[in-house]
Deep mutational scan, measured.
Amino acid sequence: QRITLKDYAMRFGQTKTAKDLGVYQSAINKAIHAGRKIFLTINADGSVYAEEVKDGEVKPFPS
């Protein structure tokens, strides 16, 4: 399943989102408010992988 960072954070909370991605909650808040195009893939085992689309390139998040 693929979902935006904002939607994932709204569904699970910023604290869990940060923990799942290995970053601080403040980084999640800042990324959402900056309007960054970050998409999360939720794997069947429950693990989460995030990618950011920037300038036409897709890069892992966090980099």
Rank of each mutant, 00 (worst) to 15 (best):
G13K: 01
A34R: 09
D20N: 05
Y8A: 03
D20K: 07
D7Q: 07
M10Q: 15
A31W: 12
A27C: 15
G35M: 10
E57G: 10
H33W: 10
I28T: 01
I3F: 11
L21N: 01
D55Y: 08
S26E: 12
G22L: 05
Q25P: 15
T17L: 06
T4M: 07
K59R: 13
G13D: 02
T15M: 14
A18I: 02
F12T: 03
A44E: 14
K19E: 10
R11N: 10
A34H: 11
I42E: 04
R36N: 06
N43V: 08
H33D: 13
K54I: 15
P62M: 04
Y8I: 01
S26T: 11
A18F: 02
F61A: 02
D45F: 05
A50P: 02
D20E: 07
P62C: 04
V58H: 10
D45V: 04
K30M: 12
G46L: 08
K6S: 10
A31G: 03
P62A: 04
E57I: 14
N43K: 11
Q14F: 13
P60M: 08
D7V: 05
K30E: 15
A50N: 00
G35W: 04
T41K: 05
D55W: 10
L21F: 02
L40W: 00
G22E: 04
G35L: 08
G46D: 05
D55S: 08
A44I: 11
K37V: 11
K37L: 14
A18V: 02
I38L: 02
A31C: 05
D55V: 06
R2I: 10
S47I: 08
V53K: 06
K19C: 12
F61W: 15
S63V: 10
M10G: 14
V23I: 12
K37Y: 07
S26N: 10
V48L: 08
E51V: 11
L21I: 07
Y24V: 14
V23P: 02
G13H: 01
T17W: 01
V58W: 14
V58A: 10
A31F: 09
P62D: 05
S63E: 12
F12K: 03
S63W: 06
A27V: 14
L21R: 00
S26Y: 09
A34E: 14
I42M: 09
M10F: 09
F39A: 03
A50Y: 02
T15S: 13
P62V: 04
Q14I: 15
Q25D: 10
K30A: 14
A18H: 02
V48Q: 01
I38G: 00
I38W: 00
I38A: 00
K16R: 09
I32P: 00
T41V: 14
V58C: 08
T41E: 08
S47T: 13
R36L: 13
E51L: 07
A44Q: 11
L40Q: 00
A44H: 09
E51Y: 09
I32C: 03
K16G: 03
T41W: 12
L40K: 00
I42G: 02
V58K: 09
T17H: 01
I28R: 00
A18C: 04
V48H: 03
I32Y: 02
I32H: 01
T17R: 00
D55F: 08
S63H: 11
A50C: 04
D20G: 04
T15C: 13
Q14S: 13
T4P: 14
A27Y: 13
G56K: 08
N43M: 12
V23Y: 05
R11F: 10
K19P: 00
G46M: 06
V48C: 06
A9T: 11
Q14N: 12
K19A: 13
Q25V: 15
V53G: 04
G22S: 06
V58S: 10
T4G: 10
F39D: 03
T15A: 14
G56M: 07
N29M: 13
Q25A: 13
A50G: 13
Q1H: 09
H33C: 12
A44S: 12
F12P: 00
R2E: 06
T17Y: 01
F39Y: 13
L21M: 04
D55G: 10
K37M: 12
K37D: 09
S63N: 14
G13R: 00
L5I: 06
F61G: 02
S47A: 08
K6H: 12
E51D: 07
L40P: 00
R36F: 06
T17G: 01
D55K: 08
K59Y: 15
K59C: 10
I42R: 05
Q1C: 14
P62H: 04
T41C: 09
F39L: 07
R36S: 08
N43I: 07
E57N: 11
K37T: 12
F12E: 07
N29G: 13
A34L: 09
K19Y: 10
F61V: 02
N43F: 11
Q1G: 10
L40V: 15
E51N: 06
D7I: 04
Y49E: 09
T17K: 00
P60S: 08
E51W: 05
K54G: 10
L5P: 00
K19L: 13
A34Q: 13
K6A: 14
L40A: 03
L40T: 02
Y49H: 11
Y49V: 13
H33Q: 14
T4L: 08
A44C: 09
F61L: 03
P60L: 07
M10T: 13
F39V: 07
S63P: 11
D45Q: 06
G46Q: 06
M10Y: 09
P62K: 03
K54Y: 12
V48M: 08
